[in-house]
Simulated assay, not measured.
Amino acid sequence: MTTMAAVILPASMAVAGPAHAPCSATHDVSSCDADRDTIPDTVERVVSGSPTGATGREDSDGDGIPDWTEVMACGTIRCASPTADSAGDGIPDFARILTCGSSTCYTDNADTNSNGVPRWASVVICGTTACATGHEDYDADGVSDAVELAACVKPSADLASTGQQLAIGLLIALSIALVLTGVMLSRKRGLFRAALESSAAL
Rank of each mutant, 00 (worst) to 15 (best):
S156F: 14
T133P: 00
D93R: 04
S144A: 07
C131V: 09
R119S: 05
A84T: 06
A177C: 12
T104L: 06
G90P: 13
A146H: 02
A173K: 11
V143M: 04
A150G: 06
N109Q: 02
R78L: 11
G75V: 15
I77D: 14
A80E: 08
S102M: 08
A130I: 09
L149E: 04
C126I: 07
D89K: 07
G134M: 05
S114A: 13
T99G: 11
C100A: 13
I97W: 00
G134E: 08
V179W: 11
S122E: 06
Q165C: 08
T112G: 09
A80W: 06
A167I: 10
S144Y: 02
A132S: 08
N115R: 12
R78T: 15
E148M: 03
L149M: 05
G116V: 01
A87H: 05
A130Y: 05
T129H: 04
G75P: 14
G142K: 13
I77Y: 09
P118D: 08
G163D: 13
F94T: 14
G88T: 11
G116L: 04
L178W: 11
A173G: 03
T76Y: 11
A151W: 11
V123D: 04
D93V: 01
S175V: 03
D141K: 12
Y106Q: 05
A130P: 02
C100F: 00
D137N: 15
V123G: 03
D93A: 09
E148G: 09
S103G: 13
K154Q: 14
S86H: 14
E136Q: 14
A80D: 07
I97R: 10
A173W: 09
T133R: 02
L178N: 08
A95P: 04
T99V: 04
V179A: 12
Q164R: 15
A160N: 05
C131W: 01
T107Y: 00
V179G: 11
S175Q: 11
T181A: 15
D139H: 14
A84H: 10
A95K: 05
L178T: 07
L174C: 11
D137K: 15
H135R: 10
D111E: 06
D108N: 09
A150M: 12
V183R: 15
C100E: 00
I91A: 09
L171T: 10
S144H: 07
A87I: 10
S103Y: 01
T107C: 09
A151I: 03
I172F: 04
S81K: 14
G75C: 11
L149Q: 01
V153G: 03
V153W: 08
T104D: 11
C152V: 12
P82F: 10
T104I: 05
D108C: 02
P155V: 13
L180R: 15
D111F: 00
S103H: 03
T107S: 13
L170V: 12
V147R: 15
D85L: 09
S114F: 05
C100P: 02
T107P: 06
C131S: 10
V117H: 10
G134P: 04
A177I: 07
